[in-house]
Design a protein around this nucleic acid. Structure first.
Length: 349
DNA sequence: AAGGCGGGGCT
DNA sequence: AGCCCAGCCTT
């Protein structure tokens, strides 16, 4: 319990002033927690304000279309969070009378809410005694106790969950959880932690043994793969041909331009001779490059994208079911991924 | 148990 | 170039 009390004392001194800490509204806490999954506070903050301003209650949120949610989410990444939030909001509206649940078990059953988020919401909104276990907590515990079990292994999750649970201050679950996460984020940082002025400098296993930079241990995943995206911009008078991405790949349900993917760079000749291209745009289409190949980096993919303008003699030969002409002035309303809205910002549409 | 899923900032 | 970020879901 010394550990937890020291942590909370540190927290009183150094805690961050964050908007979602000023409310006990479980809906708003849920918003913040989903937004902050794998996302830095500074990056998520504007999105939090955007969402609370647009949707005052979870019922307002549920009554929106998924497209609206994804549009507000545009640019934040991991878009399944937005899609799952929409599903969760409708469950709360339809099954829980619009009252956002605050108990761990019920929260855990909502789509997009895992063990961390259920613990966070139930403790913050209702002081339920559930210990959070996020990247910050893994790091603080690994260093303080000198635990070398990889944090992303099944065994590691068990070990750390047990220690996190033991350390939880049952009298102040909300404050303890906030404290250990803020401590990890501000003080016990991944790089260049502030060990010299740390309250635990005498008791921290990693610091006393000079192993701070070795902990926590994490198993390496697979490297990145390369993909080559060829986008086709087809404008006629005041319309633009857009395409909605489907399941089973990145950017599900977001809009982009008709796309030809290949496993290598393609030039104009390659494309004009491509079977897929000819089947949709015909033999005598005119092609020019609008934007030279640019590299877009995702966690496990390097996407090399080139943007082409297509001019047809007549009409499209065929139109895919997920293709639609969009009025140019409605373009802003579509939820697009980074590659697309960055291109649009740079061009003069 | 492992892989997929964004985008950005820091080293 | 690699790592990490208030992780979750599917296979």
């Amino acid at each position: 319990m010394i550990f937890g009390e020291e942590l909370q004392a540190w927290y009183q001194e150094h805690k961050r002033d964050l908007p979602w800490r000023e409310t006990h509204d479980a809906y708003k806490i849920w918003l913040s927690e989903i937004i902050l999954q794998q996302t830095r506070v500074e990056q998520g903050m504007p999105y939090y304000y955007r969402f609370v301003e647009r949707f005052n209650t979870v019922v307002d949120f549920a009554n929106a279309d998924e497209d609206d949610i994804l549009h507000l989410w545009q640019g934040l990444g991991y878009y399944s969070r937005g899609r799952n939030m929409h599903k969760a909001a409708r469950i709360v509206r339809d099954q829980y009378n619009g009252i956002f649940p605050v108990d761990y078990k019920t929260l855990l059953s909502l789509p997009g809410v895992g063990e961390y988020t259920a613990a966070a919401i139930s403790s913050f909104a209702n002081n339920e005694a559930q210990a959070v276990l996020d990247g910050n907590v893994f790091r603080v515990l690994a260093r303080y106790y000198g635990i070398e079990t990889p944090i992303n292994s099944t065994e590691g999750k068990k070990v750390f969950a047990a220690i996190a649970k033991e350390n939880l201050d049952h009298n102040h679950p909300a404050q303890y959880n906030q404290a250990i996460m803020d401590f990890g984020a501000i003080h016990c940082k991944p790089k260049q932690p502030l060990c010299e002025q740390c309250v635990f400098r005498l008791s921290c296993y990693a610091f006393t043994r000079g192993e701070v930079n070795q902990l926590p241990v994490k198993l390496k995943g697979k490297g990145s793969r390369d993909r080559y995206f060829n986008y086709f911009i087809l404008k006629n008078s005041d319309h633009l041909l857009m395409s909605k991405r489907g399941e089973g790949d990145v950017w599900q349900n977001l809009y982009e331009f008709p796309l030809l993917e290949s496993d290598h760079t393609m030039d104009i000749i390659d494309i004009l001779n491509d079977k897929w291209f000819v089947s949709y745009f015909g033999q005598d289409a005119d092609l020019s490059i609008l934007q030279q190949q640019t590299k877009h980096i995702l966690s496990h993919q390097n996407i090399y994208a080139t943007f082409f303008e297509v001019r047809l003699k007549g009409d499209l030969i065929q139109k895919k079911s997920n293709w639609d002409y969009v009025i140019l002035k409605d373009l802003d309303k579509l939820a697009k991924h980074k590659l697309i809205f960055t291109f649009l910002e740079r061009s003069n549409f």
